[in-house]
């Protein structure tokens, strides 16, 4: 246990760093995923093609490959940024494909009559989507999208492994390999750190789901 108690501030900072990645990753992938889902149901064929292509390509690429491309590929064509931003961008893009599909399941669960009624009173496509379809779709999408977001929290560890540095995973790595602490207690500490993010998230999702449940 010394490994944890001696390095408590390191763990705490790593936890905060990971939490930041999770929060920005969550917000970013929800926004981008919603946009891609909107494309996939849009009445404009090129947008649908774009959305489908996005999901097909991104969903079927390993996250590590995406990270490599961002971290090492982009600088080759002259795009430079901190690893932190590259890692975050790759994580958001990767997760957006899954968020999109979870949302689309929700959109498909909203009866066609809801959108018809909205169009019949003169709402435009965008208004129909934002006022009527998406609010109802979000409710049904909470379990699948929630799972995707929790998976993303854990995937942030993969981003850490790519040298974002100072996040929970990196703390564990440096304590074990560089400073020679025993792996088991250190990794237990890392795992507890991730559980401190994912468990409350899971509880929060349950609360959210009950709160917005509507009778139909």
């Amino acid at each position: 246990m010394d490994a944890i108690t001696q390095n408590l501030d390191l763990f705490w900072n790593g936890f905060l760093r990971s939490l930041t990645i999770c929060l920005w990753g969550g917000v970013g992938s929800l926004v981008l995923g919603t946009f891609i889902a909107t494309c996939r149901v849009a009445p404009v064929a090129p947008l649908r093609t774009f959305g489908t292509a996005w999901v097909t390509v991104i969903r079927n690429c390993p996250l590590s490959v995406l990270l490599f491309m961002f971290a090492f590929g982009l600088p080759e064509i002259g795009i430079n940024a901190e690893y932190y931003y590259f890692g975050l961008a790759a994580l958001i893009i990767y997760t957006s494909a899954f968020v999109c599909e979870g949302l689309r399941a929700g959109i498909n669960s909203v009866s066609a009559g809801q959108a018809e009624a909205a169009r019949a009173i003169g709402l435009t496509f965008t208004q129909t989507l934002t006022q009527i379809v998406l609010p109802q779709a979000f409710r049904t999408s909470i379990p699948p999208v929630g799972s995707v977001i929790i998976a993303m929290f854990k995937n942030s560890a993969v981003v850490g492994a790519f040298g974002v540095g100072l996040d929970l995973y990196s703390v564990g790595e440096s304590l074990t390999s560089a400073q020679g602490f025993a792996a088991l207690p250190v990794l237990t500490g890392v795992a507890i750190g991730y559980l401190m993010i994912t468990l409350p998230a899971g509880v929060g999702l349950g609360v959210l789901e009950r709160k917005v449940a509507i009778a139909r």
Binding site: S111, E116, A117, A120, I121, G122
Partner: peptide, 16 residues
């Protein structure tokens, strides 16, 4: 369409 009211068989009131 705003000038044409429509009433459906299945009501289609906005559920939320």
């Amino acid at each position: 369409r705003a000038d044409v009211g429509m009433v459906f068989q299945s009501f289609n009131l906005f559920a939320h």
